[in-house]
Design a protein around this nucleic acid. Structure first.
Lengths: 214, 214
DNA sequence: GCAAAAGCGGAATCCATCCTCCGTTTCGCC
DNA sequence: GGCGAAACGGAGGATGGATTCCGCTTTTGC
């Protein structure tokens, strides 16, 4: 679950503990409040001072990046699991988007950083897995021939935004759109949007009911 | 093109001029640099002082909102035009997303404010048009039966993000995904993603080539 | 057990923005 | 042309958040 810190030089015991705590805290904080949580809040959650945060991550951005890597890795895991299922693409999407739905910052982060910070290793791995996944699905006839792994990644960005806009007011609505996407990705078979149209109240809110935030 | 200021009390000549200039400047500024452009930059572009900005729009947010309304109205126009075409949904999407592709702030703005600021009139109008559009398309057999106008609006949010992430490095790539969506929206006919897979260089960049911004 | 090294905490600094305030300018009208 | 009202402009107050600094504490090596 944690980023194996086995990379470089052995950290002092307390430093190692804090590093882990920070990663954990940052994940939670970002998930709950989005990328804009003050560094101080993360420090508080981790039970350390801001100074410590900066010792471990020279820049807030580095921290964000670390979390993104973690998350991309989770996606990779989903993809890996999906490899074994009958409809791999569907299975992957459903899991991956479900993760997005649980984590507010994620979508922002992923798409924000998708372009930054050089070629991240986690991302490379994910892409590789996705390519494999697509190939399999195509072989199995559950994905049209002209889709690519890259496509899945980009579509994930799109669903991220959707979830972001939708989840609070109409939780689960995303399934509808994932269904739609999957229909678009399927070769040409049965297709039907997951029911779940909007209820009166939900529609009201999504339609822009009395402003609530800000 | 401009928001008919015919609403309330007649503005003084200079005030009216500035109001228009501000709207214009804000549109441009947001499009170019995103919602986070400093108010001062907008003022500069409009050739006025910040004080004036605040006289016309008590809050930066109000300014943003005004622009969003403008944009939603543009969408509405697209939808209106699309009504006359054979494949209305496709025609609408292609135009609407093309607009997004030209305007950086738009996507952010639209989805950000999609939920705020009470039920905006422009948005209500758009939604009404979209519903009509969908109904027609369904009657014409170019849209599956279980899609709604609301769906189109939300999908637009998703494409917005996609464009955002994609456009700079692989301009036009969005057509591919719009194609995909349309396939998902279609009843069950021929489907093919607009070619346009990625070129080597583009893929490189999208895949997260040497960080460029920040 | 001890000293140097590695870390820690968090107050203080820096900076970017929003928004307010008020003296100055322009407009509309007599 | 002259006045009051309506607008303007832009310096400065207020805020919020990232990052730095440095004296103090915990570890580690011996």
């Amino acid at each position: 679950m944690s980023t194996t810190p086995s990379g470089e030089k052995p950290l002092r015991k307390d430093a190692a503990r804090n590093h882990a705590a920070l990663l954990e805290a940052a994940k939670a904080a970002f998930a709950a409040d989005g990328i804009d949580v003050p560094v101080e809040e993360i420090a508080r959650r981790a039970g350390v001072g801001v100074g410590t945060v900066y010792r471990h991550f020279p820049t807030k951005d580095d921290l964000v990046h670390a979390i993104v890597e973690q998350r991309l890795t989770e996606f990779d895991r989903c993809a890996g699991e999906a490899l074994g299922t009958a409809d791999a693409v569907r299975s992957f999407f459903e899991q991956a988007v479900a993760i997005q739905a649980r984590d507010r910052a994620f979508k922002e982060v992923v798409s924000a950083k998708l372009r930054t910070h050089a070629v991240s290793p986690a991302r490379k791995r994910l892409l590789r897995t996705l390519r494999l996944l697509v190939r399999r699905a195509q072989a199995a006839g559950t994905a049209r021939a002209d889709v690519t792994g890259q496509d899945l990644l980009l579509l994930l960005v799109a669903t991220g935004r959707l979830v972001e806009v939708t989840e609070e007011d109409a939780p689960g609505l995303w399934r509808r759109y994932v269904g739609l996407l999957l229909d678009g990705l399927a070769p040409a078979a049965a297709r039907r949007l997951p029911r779940r149209s909007l209820s009166g109240a939900e529609l009201e809110r999504l339609a822009g009911g009395p402003a609530r935030d800000r």
